[in-house]
Design a protein around this nucleic acid. Structure first.
Lengths: 136, 136
DNA sequence: CTGAATCCCTGCCGATACTG
DNA sequence: CAGTATCGGCAGGGATTCAG
């Protein structure tokens, strides 16, 4: 297939800004993937999409996640503007993690990832991805 | 925000299948991220979204991409059912790489990634991701 | 022209132990 | 309760070289 589907709206891959020839951090796709990158990252985001969570609640929801990595992920997500920390100066010390509006807007992105993965691994996926545990 | 937006269609994070507590390869989100994973992967897909390409054409389009990684990516994408190899028994030997229907259906996924990244890094992104070259 | 094989280096992730 | 410090294993990715 050398022709292009006609009439589709401007967007990838036709957007001229998509003409980068190397994986630059300025590419919007790379930006999003960088935010989502790292083991456990999407699961932490999913948990926070369900509502605010304390550190302990996150740990309880993801038991196999070590303190170090959870801490790393929360720092990472805070740096990228997806998550906000809210320290409550009470006793016992309680810290709430919440998604920023930007973080909430990741919902549709995760949905798109879910939809493709569900379809590609579905019952009639002759050409779908193999189940090779490639890991993310 | 402890309440949930009312009336939105069933989907992440409310889908019961999204209740995994560890990054399992069976999770549709992980499947998609695994397919997209790796430096240069999305750029190779983008190039093929624009049309069929030979090995040399891909190399020309992505000059900074080494043979090893290009080869690796093409194998990876072929294994995951996104790309197909078409060997032409002529001389000089020419091999065409094309996207499968599954591969083409990655278009909307990349678009979603693009849209979020563009918005989050846009002009009014007070809470957007920092430009820290986290790399993907 | 189209790749595969090798080498090395870097950075992620996990386990464990310790602090405000 | 909510993290940080340190260490080590392992896999990903780049450069180079060789083969069909």
């Amino acid at each position: 297939m050398t022709h292009r589907t006609v009439g589709h709206p401007p967007g990838l891959p036709d957007d001229p800004r998509a003409d980068v020839t190397a994986p630059t951090p300025e590419c919007p796709v790379e930006i999003t993937l960088a935010v989502l990158q790292g083991r456990w990252t999407t699961l932490v985001i999913r948990e926070l999409l369900r509502g605010d969570r304390s550190y302990g609640e996150l740990r309880a929801a993801l038991p196999a996640l070590s303190d170090k990595v959870l801490s790393d992920r929360l720092v990472q997500l805070t740096r990228t503007g997806v998550v906000e920390r809210h320290r409550h100066p009470a006793w016992p010390p309680r810290v709430l993690y919440t998604l920023t509006p930007t973080g909430h807007s990741l919902g549709p992105v995760l949905q798109a990832l879910w939809d493709w993965g569900a379809r590609a691994s579905g019952p009639d996926s002759a050409t779908g991805p193999s189940r090779t545990p490639t890991r993310v």
